[in-house]
Design a protein around this nucleic acid. Structure first.
Lengths: 282, 282
DNA sequence: CATTAAATGTAATAAAATTACAAGATTACC
DNA sequence: GGTAATCTTGTAATTTTATTACATTTAATG
C-alpha cells in the first residue's frame, strides 16, 4: 500500500510526537526523502529515536527503509492515468494528456487480452490461404495498416474500405480463407452482414471488436479489446491505437511461427524499399 | 530518467569494476535497494568506494541517494522498457513486450516533441482552406487516419495513397492550403518531390518526419518525432503509433481552437453515424 | 496521591557511508 | 620497449547517520 496514504490513515495510532513527524513529512514528502533522521527530528521538534519509532510503527525496518517506501510512493504519483482534456488546456497540457491516456489505454487493453485466443488466431492466420482485413471509418485505417504489414509476408492479403467490394470479396471466400473484421463498437451493420456472408461461405471470421457485440456473435473467434471509452472528443482515439498494437502482435506472432528463413525474406522486402529512398548520408 | 535504463545505457562510460556493480544491481534491483553498500560491494567483488563511485557516475549524490532513485524506478511497476522480441518467445511474452515497447516509445516520442511547433501547426491547420494528408507505405494508413479525423471537422480535407494523385493534388494547391506529409524516415523520394511541388505553389508544407532528413529540409515546418528504431521485425511499428497519437494531438488542438460551438457540430457528426449501427441494447 | 504504563529524550554504541591517500593497472608517447 | 602520466581500484581513517539502552518525564487509573 502507498505509504503516504498509510500515514494519513494511521493518525489514530500515532502518539503526539509521532503526529508531529507525520505532519512534517506529509507537508513536503519530496524533501523528507532527502533528509537525514536528524534533520527531520529537528524540523518536527522531536528526538531522533522518536522519528525512528515513527518509522517502525508504519511497519518499516527503520528510517532508511521508510525513506525507500516513501520514495516509491512518490514515484507512483504519476502513473499514466486517463485524464481528460479540458477546455482551458494549452498545447502543453493537452499533448501530455493525450499521450498519457493513450499509454494508459494500452495498459488496460493489454491486460484485457486473452493470450490463448491470440495464439489460436496466429495459428489460423499462418494456415490461411488468403487473409482479408476489413473495417470502416476509423477502423478502415487499421485494416489498411494490417494490409501493409501482412503484405510484406508474401501471403495473399486483401483490404477494401468500400462496402460493396468487401461484400463481393466475402462472397468469393472459401473454407481456407480468413476474414478479419475490425470494429470498435461491433455494431456497424454492414460489417455484421459481411461476417454472415463470409461464414456462409465457410471462411473463418475473426473479429477484433468488443465483447458480446452483434459483430462478436457472428464471428468464429473474437479478440476482444477493452479500451476505456474515448469520451473526450467525439472521435475514436485510444481504441484505434490498441487495435493497431494488436495487429503488431499478430504480425509478430505470424513471423515467429514462420521461422528464421521467413524472416530473411522480410529483410529482402525492406531492402527493396531502399531504392525509393534517399541515402542516409545525403 | 529511469535509473535502470540509465544504468543499461551507461555501460560504455563505466569502468571494469563499475560494470560488475551494474551487473549485480541489474540482476536483482529489488534486492539491491535493501542492501548496504558493504553487501553490494562484496557481491560485486569490488570495494565499497567503488560502489560509491558507481553511484556518483550516475549523477546521484551517493549511495543512499542512488538507492532512492532505484526505488523510484522500481516503484513504477515494471517501467515500460523497450525490450526486443526473441526467437523463443511464446505468445504471452511477445504480446507483453510489444505492448510495453509501444508504450515506452510513446513516452520517448512525447518527450521529444516541441510544443511550440505543435501550437503553430495547429494554428496553420485552423486557418487552412484545404488540408491534405499524404504518406506512403506504413505512413499511408496514418494519413488515412488523419483524413478520418479531420473529415469530421467539416473542413476540406484530402488524402491519397497514390503518388500521381498526390502530385496532381499538390500542383493545384495554393497559398491558403496546408499539406501534411508523413514519413518516418523522411527519405522517401517521391514524398520529397511532392514537398517541393507544394512549396512551389506557395502551400504550407508540414512534415511529420525525422529531424534533418531530406524531407524535413523541404518543409515549411517540421514536427520531429524521435522514436526508438523498430529494429525487432523488419517493419514499422512504434513509429506509426507515435505518428497516430500526434494526429490525435493535432486534432484535439484543432477542436479546442475552434471552440465550443464547433464541438457541438462534431457531436452531430457522431450522431449521424448511429443510423448505420445496431442499437446498444439489441 | 501513589503507582504503573506509556511516551519521549539523552547519551552511548553500532552501522553505514564517505574521504583521503596510496598502490596498482593502463595508456600514450618517445 | 620503457617511462611518464593518467586512470582505476583498494585500504584505512573519518565522518555521518541510525539504532539501542536506559533514564526521565508525562499521563492515566485506582
Amino acid at each position: 500500500m502507498n505509504i503516504l496514504e498509510k500515514i494519513t490513515q494511521s493518525q489514530a495510532v500515532f502518539s503526539k510526537s509521532e503526529r508531529k513527524v507525520a505532519e512534517v513529512i506529509l507537508a513536503d514528502p519530496q524533501t523528507a526523502i532527502h533528509s537525514s533522521i536528524a534533520t527531520l527530528a529537528k524540523q518536527s521538534n522531536v528526538s531522533e529515536p522518536t522519528v525512528n519509532r515513527f518509522c517502525r510503527r508504519l511497519d518499516t525496518k527503520g528510517f532508511p527503509d521508510f525513506k525507500l517506501h516513501l520514495a516509491q510512493s512518490l514515484a507512483n504519483g504519476t502513473p499514466y492515468v486517463n485524464r481528460h482534456v479540458e477546455e482551458s488546456d494549452g498545447p502543453q497540457e493537452y499533448t501530455k494528456k493525450i499521450f498519457e491516456s493513450t499509454m494508459a489505454s494500452l495498459e488496460v487493453a493489454r491486460q484485457s487480452l486473452d493470450i490463448n485466443i491470440i495464439n489460436r488466431v496466429v495459428d489460423l492466420l499462418t494456415q490461411a490461404q488468403k487473409i482479408s482485413f476489413f473495417g470502416l471509418g476509423a477502423s478502415a485505417s487499421v485494416a489498411h495498416d494490417a494490409l501493409n504489414k501482412f503484405f510484406r509476408f508474401n501471403v495473399p492479403v486483401i483490404y477494401f474500405d468500400d462496402i460493396l467490394m468487401q461484400r463481393m470479396s466475402c462472397m468469393n471466400s472459401c473454407e481456407e480463407d480468413v476474414v478479419v473484421l475490425i470494429s470498435h463498437t461491433g455494431r456497424t451493420k454492414s460489417l455484421v452482414e459481411i461476417a454472415q456472408i463470409a461464414r456462409g461461405n465457410d471462411a473463418t471470421v475473426i473479429g477484433i471488436t468488443s465483447k458480446d457485440s452483434p459483430l462478436a456473435k457472428e464471428c468464429s473467434l473474437v479478440i476482444s479489446l477493452d479500451v476505456p471509452e474515448d469520451t473526450d472528443m467525439y472521435m475514436p482515439m485510444a481504441s484505434r491505437i490498441a487495435q493497431l498494437t494488436l495487429i503488431d502482435v499478430l504480425a509478430t506472432g505470424f513471423t515467429l511461427r514462420r521461422g528464421t528463413k521467413f524472416r530473411e525474406n522480410l529483410k529482402r522486402v525492406k531492402d527493396t524499399l531502399r531504392e525509393s529512398r534517399y541515402d542516409r548520408k545525403s
